[in-house]
Design a protein around this nucleic acid. Structure first.
Lengths: 157, 157
DNA sequence: GTCGATGCAAAGAATTTGCAGGACC
DNA sequence: GGTCCTGCAAATTCTTTGCATCGAC
């Protein structure tokens, strides 16, 4: 069943190409460090913090300054190419996003191990869309975070 | 109409009493600074950050060290007497919560002015409850954040 | 050649922690 | 009187910013 299923599928594999194209179209230049960040973000499945991105790049031999990581994330977020997510830790997390809302999803956060798992549910989306129409507040986007125990932690609890 | 309405009602006025009682029952002591924090949290309508709490207390002539504010919030959160909320700013916000889930609600965040407005919607709650049952992940709580423009900012945009 | 992008290091902001003294029970 | 609580200040962590340099177009 598709409804309410957790999503094993990684983000669109062409996110990287689309992001690079969007950046170029907006007049931004291409560069080694920026491409490295884009590739890392596009190829990973779960949300990453700026620190994790910098660490993974260094581990992969493509060290990029933290300032550049932050500036790249800020740029990508302003172009809605990444979605920022605050799940409660000390740092913000980012994940690839597509402007049209494709692959839109939400997150399950494990209170025990911190693992973040994406899921999607059409009914929830419908409820939120309807709700938005009834509120005296224009709604442009939304985040839903469910907290609990992931299967692994629930088993060992 | 009650559904999907923003909530003008302040949190239960007896939250303060309940919180003080819960703390005492758990073996914690009462003190001036702690009571000042409890009173401020219980009497305000919107979510507050640790910094805002410290500032308001100082303005009210009841200065409390920031460390104490943080320690009190940590304690209250661990006892589920306050709910922590990350709306995207640099700091976490807190609001009174009742263990039984009474006055449970969610938030609208204005992308322009940052104003946070609570709302509640039974249908959304139902969709989330059903969803929780279908997921391979135990769900203990949830946050929903809708982003957009508040009426005031929408009017002046 | 121009102007955007990068890296380093310093600045800032939020939160945590060590410690000595004071208050509650 | 013991133990919890508090405040201060130092330490940490996350993020932003100034500035000189480098590189893409």
């Amino acid at each position: 069943m598709a409804a309410a299923a957790t999503i094993p599928t990684p983000p669109a594999a062409d996110w990287i190409d689309r992001a690079e194209a969007a950046l170029r179209a907006a007049g931004h230049r291409s560069s080694g460090p920026r491409s490295a960040v884009l590739e890392l973000i596009g190829n990973q499945e779960c949300v990453l913090s700026a620190r994790e991105i910098a660490d993974e790049l260094r581990a992969g031999g493509r060290e990029v300054g933290v300032a550049t990581v932050y500036r790249t994330l800020e740029l990508l977020e302003s172009m809605r190419l990444v979605q920022r997510l605050d799940v409660g830790g000390r740092s913000a997390r980012y994940e690839p996003a597509l402007p049209g809302g494709e692959h839109h999803h939400h997150h399950l956060v494990c209170d025990r191990c911190g693992r973040v798992t994406p899921f999607e549910d059409p009914r929830l989306e419908r409820a939120i869309a309807d709700l938005g129409r009834r509120l005296d507040h224009s709604v442009g986007g939304h985040d839903v975070i469910l907290r609990g125990l992931c299967p692994r932690c629930a088993a060992s609890a």
